[in-house]
């Protein structure tokens, strides 16, 4: 019996991600959810601008790329034109939480029947480690060498808390990819986000806290530890909105 192997919805192409980057884990979780639901033939993915811009090389799916931050808008069009397709947007925090904030908020408010995987690593990875809207107070980045100063740069954006205030979305959850336990919970959340779409329930967003060892200046192992000690206390894990659970009560 095979306990663990590469899911079918992932190609065999080696990823370009840095060693220890948890993008690879999150790609696998998405592919495993697609395999589990048997929707590989009708799933369309949308890659963002950011480190995961080349995600189309790694999924055995129909893929496209949206302009920076516009993945939920492209997903809206794809889903409305092809209601039978399962459409997901895979976005980073620089993509979704800054330039693409309007698209994400309005797609959630309209309760578009799409799935958004939001990878939050608190930094702009691809461009070399600049401060992101999600960088933590005091976090050292290329553009905040003395640490993020909230008085100067404002406070980090907590996307899940914000979107959960809207009446629109079906499912909003935050998970992390920093330990076996958290990765297994992330797997369940991602699968639920896809199942919601298959069942026609509406907008599902899973925020996955991720690491960026290269730009955080840490070893891969230390980066996961930093997530535990610093990032998760600021971005608490959990389900922020789940309309199906409310209905069941």
């Amino acid at each position: 019996m095979i306990v663990a192997t590469r899911p079918h919805a992932l190609t065999t192409a080696p990823t370009h991600y840095c060693p220890g980057c948890t993008h690879g884990i999150i790609h696998r979780l998405v592919a495993e959810a697609i395999d589990a639901l048997g929707i590989e033939g009708r799933t369309i993915g949308i890659a963002p601008v950011g480190c995961s811009v080349l995600a189309y090389n790694y999924f055995n799916l129909d893929m496209t790329v949206a302009a920076h931050g516009r993945a939920p808008a492209v997903a809206t069009g794809l889903k409305r034109a092809n209601p039978e397709s399962i459409v997901f947007a895979y976005q980073g925090d620089g993509d979704l939480a800054s330039i693409g904030m309007a698209e994400a908020v309005h797609a959630a408010a309209r309760n578009e029947n799409i799935t958004v995987i939001f990878v939050n690593n608190a930094i702009y990875g691809m461009t070399g480690g600049q401060m992101a809207p999600t960088s933590l107070p005091g976090q050292v980045t290329q553009t905040s060498p003395a640490g993020r100063d909230e008085l100067l740069c404002g406070f980090p954006v907590k996307v899940c808390e914000m979107l959960a205030q809207l009446d629109g979305p079906e499912y909003i959850a935050r998970v992390a990819a920093n330990s076996v336990k958290n990765v297994l919970s992330a797997k369940k959340a991602i699968e639920k986000a896809f199942r919601n779409q298959v069942e026609g329930r509406g907008f599902s967003l899973v925020e996955v806290l991720s690491s960026c060892p290269t730009n955080w200046g840490m070893t891969p192992g230390d980066a996961l530890g930093w997530m535990d000690s610093t990032m998760i206390p600021y971005y608490p894990l959990g389900v922020y909105k789940d309309r199906s659970a409310k209905e069941a009560d």
């Binding site: 095979i2 306990v3 948890t22 690879g24 330990s179 076996v180």
Partner: peptide, 19 residues
């Protein structure tokens, strides 16, 4: 023991375990 923890954390999906 084939618990699969290593494969769960592998970002590159290069570990296969069977038992």
């Amino acid at each position: 023991t084939g618990c699969g923890f290593c494969a769960t954390m592998c970002p590159d999906c290069v570990i296969t375990i069977s038992r």
